[in-house]
């Protein structure tokens, strides 16, 4: 179980996250949604230990991120939004690196890495430098690195970007399998159709604050919306997207009047 209490993070005078609280039960796929700059990535980065919280507490399975960071990380897998990897390593070497940083038994590293390389269709590229990988291949490698140590909690920040349709299906099924195995998956994405399909529970935030929480169905009902996209637009204040689009077109036409 994950418990986040009054989490806040300040950058100078700006609060990226303010008083955020939520709980995630075992076996749940928990969706973290919000417009750009809402504070999703900051929340996730605090949860995985990349940033420190200004105030607030995070406990994962009874352990506190501040005091038991490494014990939590041993059971936590993270797939970051950016494809930041040491590109001079090969894919296989990256996986070996992750295993070593997780202190996995040396003799188990190679077979484990080989298995994942094969299952994720990275066999042909495994011994090539990551510098030559496509975005999708890097994303697959990041996923392999995120799960190679068999974590109980998996945090995915925009994991589907750059993946082809087959790989996206594989990722979705994998997330469901994780939850069926009573593990926790935190899923950040802007692709609301996917979120609606795979998440059990959703948290929508904006400007660092909680807007709403519940199942996709509950959120849609509460907003009297037929789709999650509609509910999301209402909650985040983007109520009349059509008007906004027309307004943008009018503005650029007026601004470039002499060209037109």
């Amino acid at each position: 179980m994950i418990k986040v209490e009054n989490l806040s993070r300040q950058y100078g005078t700006l609060w990226a996250v303010k008083d955020l609280s939520f709980e995630i039960a075992d076996g749940q796929v928990y969706g973290l949604l919000g417009p750009n700059g809402a504070g999703k990535s900051t929340t996730v980065k605090i949860m995985v230990g990349m940033l420190a919280a200004t105030t607030g507490e995070i406990t994962i399975n009874g352990l506190n991120i501040k005091t038991d960071g490494n014990a939590i990380k041993a059971n936590l897998g993270f797939v970051p939004e950016s494809c930041a990897l040491y590109e001079n390593l090969t894919g296989r070497e990256h996986l070996e690196m992750v295993c070593n940083l997780h202190h996995l038994p040396v003799e188990g590293i190679e077979p484990q890495a080989n298995k994942l390389i094969e299952l994720l269709d990275l066999k042909d590229a495994a011994d090539k430098r990551i510098a030559g990988y496509s975005k999708g291949m890097k994303q697959k490698l990041l996923l392999a690195g995120g799960i190679i140590h068999n974590p109980r909690v998996l945090i995915l920040d925009e994991p589907l970007s750059g993946l082809d349709a087959n790989a996206q299906s594989l990722f979705r099924e994998l997330i469901k399998e994780f939850a069926r195995d009573n593990r926790i998956v935190i899923f950040c994405s802007h692709v609301l159709e996917v979120v609606e399909r795979i998440c059990d529970q959703l948290l929508i935030i904006d400007r660092g604050k909680k807007l709403t929480e519940g199942t996709p169905q509950q959120i849609m009902e509460n907003q009297s919306a037929t789709t999650l996209g509609e509910a999301f637009s209402r909650l985040t204040g983007a109520t009349d997207i059509d008007d906004q689009a027309r307004g943008i077109l009018r503005a650029i036409e007026r601004g470039n009047g002499d060209n037109g």
Partner: peptide
Amino acid sequence: ASYQAAWIYYTTPAD
């Protein structure tokens, strides 16, 4: 130049 790949040190239980 690949300094952003250092996220791995923060998210794993590495000493």
